Amino acid sequence: MRCRLTLLAAARCSPVLDTRFDDDRPLDNAGWQAVRRGAPALVGLAAAALRYRSPSERCRETGYALGLFPLAQPALRDCDMGRWRGRTLSEVAAREPDAVDAWLRDPYVAPHGGESLTAFIGRIGHWLDTRPAADDEWIVAVTEPAVLRAALCHALKTPPHAYWRIDAHPLAAVTLTGTAGDWHLSCA
């Protein structure tokens, strides 16, 4: 069954320099302001037949603020960053520079003890490909920016390293159309 899936990156929960791995903080003031400013352009997302979200607090708050009331999907959680969870990249790089280098260079390793990049992309891809939907049904998912990036890698069948080349800013939206294993990026 062919469907349309719009992925919306949640509003921010911290300044860029304080972004933490697997962050579960609520929206910060700037995030709330961005949702209020962006709401008129995003209000149409509430017309989607199915509405999902990553289980984090910021995805919940973003979805509810936009009137989507999305259902939490554990499979849409951020990448499991193991012992790096809650730390910034600069903190981890100062303590484990070789591990950070290996993680950025090899998508199959998980020096932090969590998920490798390929395992993360695979998990998100499995969720994409197993969505039950009626023909031509519209699905919306409020996700972590990392989930949006992983979904694009899977849908476009790019090598895992392409993940690092995708910028997913807060409240960025992309739409995929298609069926399991046959996704197309829709630029409208």
Rank of each mutant, 00 (worst) to 15 (best):
L148H: 00
E144L: 06
H126W: 11
P97F: 01
I139E: 04
H112K: 14
V140Y: 09
P107E: 06
R95C: 13
A150P: 00
R105N: 11
I124F: 01
R149M: 01
P111E: 13
F120N: 03
I124E: 01
R105E: 11
D101M: 09
L128R: 00
R131L: 15
C153R: 03
A151P: 00
R123D: 08
H154P: 03
V147Q: 03
Y108C: 12
A141Q: 04
A155P: 02
V109K: 07
V100T: 02
S116E: 09
D129Y: 12
A146D: 04
H126L: 07
G113F: 05
W127Q: 14
A99F: 13
V142H: 00
F120A: 07
E96N: 06
E115W: 14
Y108T: 11
A102P: 10
L117K: 00
A155F: 03
L104T: 12
A150R: 00
P107S: 09
G125K: 13
A94L: 15
D101P: 00
H126P: 12
A151V: 01
S116P: 02
P111M: 09
R105S: 14
R149E: 00
I121Y: 08
E144V: 02
G114M: 09
F120T: 07
V109P: 13
I139N: 04
E137H: 09
T118F: 04
P107Q: 07
E96G: 04
I139P: 00
P97L: 02
R95P: 06
D135E: 12
A141H: 00
E96K: 03
G113D: 12
G113K: 06
T143G: 05
A102T: 14
P111F: 05
D106T: 07
A134G: 14
W127G: 10
G113C: 08
H126D: 08
R131M: 15
D106Y: 03
A133F: 09
A110D: 04
I121C: 08
D98N: 14
G122I: 04
A155Q: 05
W138V: 10
L117A: 03
I139D: 01
P132G: 04
L104F: 15
H126R: 15
V140W: 06
T118E: 10
P97N: 06
V140S: 01
P97W: 05
V142C: 02
H126Y: 10
P111I: 08
A94Y: 14
W138L: 13
F120M: 07
R149L: 01
V109N: 12
R95M: 12
D106M: 05
D98C: 12
P111Q: 13
G122D: 05
A102M: 13
S116W: 02
